[in-house]
Design a protein around this nucleic acid. Structure first.
Lengths: 173, 173
DNA sequence: GATCGTACTGGACGATTGTCCAAAGCGTCT
DNA sequence: AGACGCTTTGGACAATCGTCCAGTACGATC
C-alpha cells in the first residue's frame, strides 16, 4: 500500500473515530506511520485528504451496493443486505460525518450529491422492475431512512435488521 | 435573557453551523456578546456547554412533538408535522451532530438515549392507539427514518414532505 | 460610605493547530 | 562517481485552542 493510500485509509478511520472536525495533520501522519510533513506533499490541505478519502469510501460503498442489488431477489432481502453492507463498510459514523460535512463544503457537497443521485437511480430501477409503487420517490426515502437507521443504531443497538426490515419492508409494497 | 441562556443559544446555533468539533470558547463568547472568560464561569468546560445546549434543544423538541401528536389524527398528518417541526426546531444539523457526538461521549450518550427512548415510547403509544402493526418497532424505525430524511434533505432539497410522507406512510398501515 | 458577593472582563499560559520548507534519503540514469 | 528527481523527514512559524486567574463593575447589606 502506498503512502498516499495509507493516508486515505487513516482518514476514513479517524473521521469515524474522532469526527470530521477533529482530524489533524499529525493524527493522520501518525496513523499512517509517516512523518507529519508528508500530508502536505501528497495533498494540498488536510480538508483535501478528508474529502478525497470520504468520497472514495462513499463511491466504493455504492459500487458494492450495485452488485448487492443484482444478487437480491426480494425487498426484504435487499434491505437486510443494505444494512449489513453499509455497517461493515467503514461504519455508520463515516457516512453520517461525510453527509454533515457536505453541508458546509461546496466541493464535497457536489461530489456526495452525485454519488447519492447515482445510488438512488440504481435503487429506483431495481424497485421499478419489481413493480414497487412510486419507485423514484421510494428510492430517495429509502436511502435516507437507511442512513437514519445506521445513525440511531449507534446509540441503541437493539435496532437490528430483525426490527428494521419488516417495518421498512411495508413501505416497499 | 440571561448570559447563561445566551451562551446555550449560541451553542445550538454554532453546533449546527460549524459542527460539534469546531465550536470554540471564543466563538461562543462572541456569538453571545460577552467576554471570553465568562464561558468557564458558567460552565466547567466547552464540552459541558455543548452537551447542556444540545440536550436541552433535544428535550424541548421532543416535548413539542408530544403536543404535536395530540393534535394529529392520521399517520400522514403526524409525518408531515413531524418533519416540519424538527426542521424548524434548530435545524437538522443540530440533531445529527448531537447524535454523532453522543457516539463519542458517554454522558451525552446516556442523556440522548433517555430522550430518544421517551420519544419512541410516546410515538409507539400513538401508533398502538391507531392499530398500526408492531407499534414499538415501527416507532423506533420511524424516528430513525425521519432523522435520515432531515439529513438527506440538507443535500437534496427535492426531498420534500410531498415525496416523503406517501412513502413512509405505507409503513404505517 | 464601607464592605461584600456575584457577574464579568481581558489577558496569560502551555498545548496544539495548518501550513510551509530546508535538508536528507534513495533509486535511476549518464 | 556524480547528478538528477521523487519521496520523506522533522522542525519552524503564526494562529488558535481550552483553561485559568487577577482585576473591575455593581447592586445589596450593614
Amino acid at each position: 500500500m502506498t503512502v498516499r493510500e495509507r493516508l486515505l485509509r487513516a482518514a476514513t478511520e479517524l473521521i469515524a473515530e474522532k469526527g470530521w472536525g477533529a482530524v489533524s495533520t499529525r493524527m493522520l501522519a501518525d496513523r499512517a506511520g509517516v512523518g507529519s510533513g508528508v500530508v502536505h506533499y501528497h495533498f494540498h490541505s488536510v480538508q483535501a485528504v478528508l474529502v478525497q478519502a470520504s468520497v472514495g469510501a462513499l463511491k466504493s460503498a455504492v459500487d458494492d451496493l450495485g452488485h448487492l442489488l443484482d444478487a437480491s431477489s426480494t425487498p426484504a432481502d435487499v434491505l437486510t443486505r443494505l444494512l449489513e453492507a453499509l455497517d461493515g463498510h467503514g461504519g455508520q459514523e463515516l457516512f453520517t460525518e461525510t453527509l454533515l460535512a457536505a453541508t458546509r463544503n461546496d466541493e464535497l457537497r457536489q461530489a456526495v450529491g452525485e454519488v447519492l443521485v447515482d445510488f438512488r437511480r440504481t435503487l429506483a430501477e431495481w424497485l421499478a422492475a419489481r413493480d414497487v409503487p412510486t419507485p423514484v420517490e421510494t428510492a430517495a426515502v429509502l436511502a435516507a431512512a437507511v442512513d437514519g437507521v445506521l445513525l440511531h443504531r449507534a446509540l441503541s443497538p437493539d435496532l437490528t435488521s430483525d426490527v428494521v426490515v419488516p417495518v421498512l419492508g411495508r413501505a416497499l409494497r
